[in-house]
Design a protein around this nucleic acid. Structure first.
Lengths: 190, 190
DNA sequence: TACATAATTGCACAATGTGCATAATTAATC
DNA sequence: GATTAATTATGCACATTGTGCAATTATGTA
């Protein structure tokens, strides 16, 4: 049904890709459609459930060089979004859809804000592993949000570049490039 | 009608605050409602049209100490959101609504992404006034997005604190505090 | 008053989404 | 293989949001 939804949007446009049409294409009833997706856009955008587990967070906290919170945060973010980067066929169609219909970003972002709190907790944990934040206890917690934003934006750009370059390079390249961008910002602004 | 929408949501809950009920309260027809708002949430959230004019951008570029891009960007962002901070009665109700119904952030964010491109252009202009970015021409443009994210997040936190403290202090306090937060991040991460 | 313009409304309609009862499919057990 | 139990798909009625269009009402102006 996701395939049908995505294909129809690209073929007929978002307005003609009604639930009815999608269900006809997928050969299911419209009622069944809503048994699987909360909304039409869920199917179109493929809003999979990202989980931020303690294991993943800890793994990144330990593996980052010097326990740098930027490196570990970027690594974590890239790992979380990597499934949607690798699922090539569907994902490419979805990327094209977002390009054509920027309004749909809304839902996508909505889902992301749903996990923003989880990500913030994760960044705070990662900060606690970073020696530069080990002394300043509670006050530093306020910095988690700006740090997360900085890292997320860097990943966004880096992923864009990666996709534009043909998605050939290993995904780690996204991480490396994103960390470099974040560092540049810090260097320039200090 | 905005007043009626906001009041009803707080009184009866989002589900019972239907268009029909809101229109009854506001004593207009539902058709009239949609002549003024594109959607129910528009009225509830009061998504006013933020305009990023060249004048405002230039004013901030010039007034910022040392033409620091963080200071000017934060100042710009605070100025853009200040109307919604000052319109006390309605805004307080809306803040409470967002607290109760975090899902509604979606639309709010959607509107913000609509002006993200404008904001990015603004930040690039502000960067061009910052001596630290004057040499590195095109490459630095990539940094606009992370910088904007950093500033936006800092403002978000600072505004939250400001509201929590009772919204008594002048709005400039938001700017000052946000700049301080952004600076802390940069200092810590370098 | 008479006229032009703008604001409001009614009505028909399309589309999304939900609740609930029923049918069809599949798997499990004897 | 037949029977039963679980899951999955469906049909139908309905509420809600939102739009297009034509008609009506209100408002200002000469």
């Amino acid at each position: 049904m996701e395939r049908a939804a995505v294909d129809l949007v690209l073929r007929d446009g978002i307005h003609l890709a009604t639930i009815e049409a999608i269900c006809e294409e997928a050969e299911v009833s419209s009622r069944t459609f809503f048994n699987y997706f909360d909304s039409k856009e869920d199917a179109i955008l493929g809003l999979s459930d990202i989980k931020v587990t303690d294991e993943i967070v800890l793994a990144h906290a330990r593996s980052a060089r010097d326990h740098d919170v930027v490196t570990s945060s970027v690594g974590l973010i890239v790992e979380l979004i990597s499934p949607s980067l690798q699922n090539t066929s569907l994902h490419q169609s979805r990327t094209e859809i977002l390009r054509r219909y920027p309004e749909l970003f809304a839902r996508k972002v909505a889902r992301l804000t749903r996990i923003t709190d989880e990500l913030l907790d994760a960044v705070r944990k990662l900060m606690s592993h970073d020696p530069r934040f080990s002394d300043s206890a509670g006050a530093a917690s306020l910095l988690a949000e700006p740090i997360l934003s900085l890292c997320t934006a860097s990943v966004r750009i880096s992923a864009k570049e990666w996709i534009a370059a043909g998605s050939d390079a290993p995904i780690d390249e996204i991480t490396i490039r994103a960390v470099a961008l974040a560092r540049q910002v810090v260097e320039k602004l200090r």
